[in-house]
Amino acid sequence: MPQVPAANFLARCLMLAAIPIVMLVAMQLGDADISVWEGLLGFVSGDTSAQAMIVGEVRLPRVLLALFVGAALGAGGAAMQGLLRNPLAEPALLGVSSGAALGAILMLYHGLAWQAGFWLPASAMLGALLAVLLVWGLAGRKATGQSLILSGVAINALLSAAMALALNYAPSPFAMQEIIFWLLGSLSNRGWDQLAFAVPAILLGWALIWSGRHLLTGLSLGEDSATTLGVYRTPVLAAILLGLALSVGAAVAVAGTIGFVGLVVPHLVRPLVNSQPAPLVLWSGIGGALLLLLADMAVQALGGQQELRIGAVTALVGGPFFLWLILSGRGRF
């Protein structure tokens, strides 16, 4: 195993240290001019004053959700790139995002009764799971990277068509507009209920992905070598796919589809872990959390009449940066 240079170690320490600092700054951002510390103390002691509610019920869950959703997307992206041995892979390729979106549309506009806030993320989550199962089923039980990509593209196209159909027949005239905004992703007005829903699923998903980390390491030698090594087994593949569906599905279910984090973050982090697939998943999670929190801070700082969508911010920042990354490292892929 190659030695990790000291500079990389330092960079990883900085990433970890940045998270609490950025969190503290993020907690200060908002329209209301209040004392965060007093609000937090008030919230912990069960106070329902405006200050306590703003800090405890609006800002804190939003910051935490940005961290968890970002981590799920970053780690999911790293796992996908390792699994498919393709630098362009991201979780959306497995149909996670479009499956979740379809589930959400069906529940939002065709659901029987929309009672608690629980039903929307639950159906989005179910949509994501079904989409991944469908992709996997189509690719064959012992799918190779290529067959997964191909069936992913096919299922994504199918799901997009189903989404368009469901929106066409939606009884609400605003369905189309609303779902477009939802697809751009947002963390605003999210609260503890969304967090309570998403975090267990994200953690379970990570556990499953982590259990299959040897497959990712083996795959870095190629599919044939991984098979020879005995790590390319169906249950391991199933664990990773299910873990992706759970963690990314839960993230999409509460925050909408936020593009680019899963694609860019593994590329940023890869040099820091010497391109080793298993640590890459871990550090991409941390990097994704940091990136999404920063993006959400930009959303709040820029403000404006209409809320700026976080998916637009990540794509605007991520796109050119990704391009630079490709150009500067041309020939490496």
């Binding site: 329902t48 509610m53 703003i54 405890g56 019920e57 609006v58 939002l108 506009y109 659901g111 929309w114 806030g117 609400s172 605003f174 609303e178 905004f181 939802w182 007005n189 609260g191 503890w192 209920d193």
Partner: peptide, 15 residues
């Protein structure tokens, strides 16, 4: 249901 109503049912307001 409308997504537009989501801010109106935020726990901070309801509490």
């Amino acid at each position: 249901f409308s997504l537009a109503n989501v801010p109106l049912r935020h726990r901070a307001l309801l509490r």
